[in-house]
Design a protein around this nucleic acid. Structure first.
Length: 220
DNA sequence: CATGGGATTGACT
DNA sequence: GTCAATCCCATGC
């Protein structure tokens, strides 16, 4: 699989966020097409790099084309692609994938421990719902930033890795994804700079993490 | 050194 | 809709 070169990421982060839609993320024997992204830039307060260089933002301020992986809510790993020139804190958060290969592996990882502590044990069995565990649908595997890292087996150990050489790799849009229908909307789960429409997703795709707000103008 | 807050998810009321 | 889990790290004494 041919990966995107570092210079792909060396341009305005919002542009890269849009261009990454349709590209393929691969790790741990599984892969999926990116269907949702968000851009973050040091010039706005929702970005971790807003505060400048700290141990946490070292990768974020480093050279483009690297993976920035951090832990969220003490539980989930978040995968970002570092963008813009070295010294500028900017990254694209990969928020959702449409699974394309290694689905059995994804399902195994998602069903196993590693996500929410409660996921797995008590879940489905007790609620009586058939199959809350062990039989996740394809659309439940990678439809969220924490879900996709779990499905691909991406952990904090991958922080700083080169996205061209791996272990986490990103490849260009495959045939059939050359011109995705992209919708822009506001970012999810943040409390600052909420007005920026820096979230991009594939219109109508079933693997996105959350429905589109009315303002996005997507027809169901 | 102590504290507080998340770029979330899944279970439960 | 509400809520807890859980840990890294930025911030403030």
């Amino acid at each position: 699989m041919k990966a995107l070169a570092p210079d792909f990421y060396d341009r305005p982060v919002v542009e890269v966020a849009r261009e990454l839609i349709g590209c393929v993320v691969e790790h741990g024997g599984a892969a999926g097409v990116i269907v949702e992204t968000e851009a973050y830039h040091e010039s706005e307060p929702a970005c971790h790099a807003f505060v400048g260089l700290t141990p946490r933002t070292r990768t974020l301020l480093g050279p483009p084309g690297r993976a920035y992986v951090y832990r969220s809510y003490g539980i989930h790993a978040m995968l970002n692609a570092v963008c813009e020139q070295e010294g500028v804190g900017a990254a694209v958060l990969i928020r959702a994938l449409e699974p394309t290969s290694g689905l059995a592996l994804m399902r195994a990882r998602r069903g196993a421990t590693g996500g929410s502590p409660r996921a797995g044990l008590s879940a489905g069995a007790r609620s009586g719902r058939p199959g809350a565990r062990g039989s996740l649908s394809d659309h439940e595997l990678c439809s969220g930033p924490g879900k996709l890292t779990q499905a691909l087996g991406i952990s904090l150990a991958e922080n700083g890795g080169d996205l061209a050489s791996g272990p986490v790799r990103i490849a260009p849009r495959p045939p059939g994804w050359l011109e995705p229908a992209i919708v822009a909307s506001t970012r999810v789960g943040i409390t600052k700079a909420v007005e920026l429409r820096w979230r991009f997703s594939v219109a109508g795709n079933r693997d996105v993490s959350r429905p589109w707000p009315r303002s996005a103008g997507v027809r169901p």
